[in-house]
């Protein structure tokens, strides 16, 4: 992708974004190599239940004597996988929807956008709750629920992008040379939309992680014994007197992850806006 390297360079120049990238990198590495690093989220040790953080248990232990750090690491796995799957699902459905609706307009636009309106008629969490009420509680249901609520975001952003690009002369030019609709859509408009889609992916990651955790916290997300941050908060809340760290530390991991995605998303938006502004300035100067 053109400009990908440049955008990354701009990104690491910003302190907040660099820190966020570093944190996410560590988190992903931990999640991927969790087994190799010897984290065990299920080993119980009743003798050591609800122990405060110590040299042996950096994050302490839970009510069954399980190592909270291990559970946080595996929770990252659950969280990232559920959110990642949801974002992919939302993108695979939402991007083509927006592309077709924006490019062809007319009845296709009307039908697709009404579908989006229906998805938006309910706040995301209600929609997810309704879906889970139907499909029962599973990691797949959580992923599906979070993913479907992400579709409108992609569809709307891509559609808006297509509508604005369609007015641009370089898209009209393709038609003037005799390029087909497919060529216009996939070879001209889509490559000019990747940046916007990328921003949406990052933004949706933070929303998806939050939503997944919220569902687990409400007791309807990824079911136990799979470790998940939301579920840990839910249980930890019952032991606030005995073991405050139980609810604090997984929540901290969750918060930092969300903040990291949010920071990167905002930095990306700012970088792309600056680029646009630079182009506009150049155009303004010449007129």
């Amino acid at each position: 992708m053109r400009g990908g390297a440049r955008i990354l360079r701009e990104l690491v120049r910003r302190k907040g974004a660099l820190l966020s990238l570093a944190f996410l990198a560590v988190l992903v590495l931990l999640a991927v190599f969790a087994v190799a690093l010897g984290f065990d989220p299920v080993k119980q040790n009743i003798l050591h239940s609800l122990e405060a953080p110590s040299r042996a248990y950096w994050f302490g232990t839970d009510e069954l004597g399980r190592d909270i750090l291990s559970r946080v690491v595996y929770g990252a796995r659950t969280s990232l996988m559920t959110a990642g799957g949801a974002v992919v699902l939302a993108g695979v459905i939402g991007v083509p929807m927006g592309l077709v609706a924006g490019f062809f307009g007319g009845w296709r636009d009307a039908v697709l956008m009404r579908a989006v309106d229906v998805l938006l008629a309910l706040p995301a969490i209600l929609f997810a709750l309704a879906l889970i009420a139907v499909f029962g509680r599973s990691q797949g249901a959580a992923m599906l629920a979070v993913g479907i609520t992400g579709i409108p975001g992609f569809a709307r952003i891509v559609r808006a992008q297509v509508l604005s690009l369609r007015q641009r002369d370089f898209v009209v030019a393709v038609e003037a040379f005799g390029g087909s609709s497919g060529y216009s859509m996939f070879r001209t408009i889509l490559p000019n939309s990747w940046n916007q889609i990328l921003v949406q992916v990052v933004v949706l990651c933070s929303i998806a992680i939050l939503l997944e955790a919220a569902l687990a916290f409400l007791g309807v997300g990824v079911p136990p014994p799979t470790p998940s941050w939301g579920e840990m908060l839910r249980t930890g809340k019952s032991y606030l007197h005995e073991a405050p760290y139980y609810a604090i530390l997984p929540g901290l991991a969750l918060t930092l992850t969300i903040l990291s995605f949010d920071t990167i998303g905002r930095s990306l938006t700012a970088i792309l806006e600056n680029e646009d502004a630079a182009v506009t300035r150049a155009e303004g100067v010449a007129s």
């Binding site: 053109r2 400009g3 002369d169 030019a173 003037a176 182009v279």
Partner: peptide, 15 residues
């Protein structure tokens, strides 16, 4: 063939 008014918008920026 067609030549456009605004040279800034007539060329695909990613090519």
């Amino acid at each position: 063939q067609y030549v456009f008014q605004d040279p800034f918008s007539a060329l695909n920026p990613v090519k």
